[in-house]
């Protein structure tokens, strides 16, 4: 009668026992007979399938070949992805190049746009429309002249029916490190007008430009020293008439009669 259990017999057969355990099993005749039978079985299984391992390898089972195919597929996948990105990019670039605006805005156009933005924002304010009230005209003039590093007189438009409300200092994002001054006027009906003033250094563009943006007209004027954009809801003719009163006051040398260019 075998004293060894099934697991011990299998462990012996499969080489999982240490030397001492093996000696114990080997002393057991019945166990050794069982092991011999199982050994024959295992030999038969190997005889059955070992030939499969000895067959020459077909090309399709070559790891080197499979790796090449895999890498090629991988690369093609990446290439496809790159092409999708490229096509999208071309579309975006074409869309940008073919956008309605035919040419990039130049600096003075940015100044006009900024002038209109500032006009829209601050003329809507009642109590905080200006930073320094028009009653402190002298102080305001000195302050803004100092900030913009150029002499800025506060034009008087009372003859044209506009009261001077005051002014504020603004950033001028279009100019590098730039500053701008906004002066605000109001007529008897409560309609407001702003002047957007910047130093003219580095700004090239026409001397005059009249643009309609939204509900407002903007009249841009520049000389060698300063730029001034007049913004208001008034008709273009009215702005031109006002400009005739404003520019001579801003510039020490009276400007000659302007010839406006319509956009």
């Amino acid at each position: 009668m075998s004293m060894a259990d099934r697991d011990t017999i299998m462990a012996y057969l499969d080489g999982e026992l240490d030397a001492e355990a093996r000696r114990v099993v080997e002393a057991d005749k019945a166990a050794m007979a069982e092991i011999a039978a199982l050994q024959r079985q295992a030999d038969a299984i190997r005889a059955l399938y070992d030939p499969a391992a000895a067959e020459p390898l077909p090309a399709r089972l070559s790891p080197h070949r499979l790796a090449l195919l895999h890498n090629r597929r991988h690369r093609e996948g990446l290439l496809r992805a790159a092409m999708v990105v490229a096509v999208l990019g071309i579309g975006v670039a074409a869309g940008w190049l073919l956008r309605p605006v035919p040419a990039p805005a130049s600096l003075y156009e940015h100044l006009i746009a900024d002038a209109v933005s500032a006009h829209t924002i601050y003329t809507a304010e009642n109590r905080h429309a200006v930073e320094v009230p028009g009653s402190e005209g002298e102080h305001l003039s000195a302050w803004l002249s100092s900030k913009l590093a150029t002499a800025l007189p506060m034009p008087d438009l009372s003859k044209e029916g506009f009261a001077f409300l005051g002014g504020r200092l603004l950033p001028a994002p279009a100019l590098s490190g730039g500053r701008a001054a906004q002066l605000m006027y109001e007529d008897a009906r409560g309609e407001r007008l702003t002047l957007y003033l910047t130093p003219a250094a580095g700004v090239d563009g026409p001397e005059f430009e009249l643009v309609r943006l939204g509900g407002d007209n903007a009249l841009y004027w520049a000389d060698a020293r300063i730029t001034c954009t007049i913004v208001g809801p008034q008709p273009a003719e009215r702005l031109q008439a006002l400009a005739g009163a404003i520019f001579p006051q801003l510039s020490p040398v009276p400007a000659s009669a302007p010839a406006y260019r319509e956009l």
Binding site: I45, A52, A53, L57, S62, P63, A67
Partner: peptide, 18 residues
């Protein structure tokens, strides 16, 4: 890695065949 893989192919074929 590929050489190591290749060395395993006969055994894999045998196991798969069985």
């Amino acid at each position: 890695f590929l050489d190591e893989l290749e060395a395993c192919v006969p055994a894999l074929r045998r196991y798969a065949r069985a």
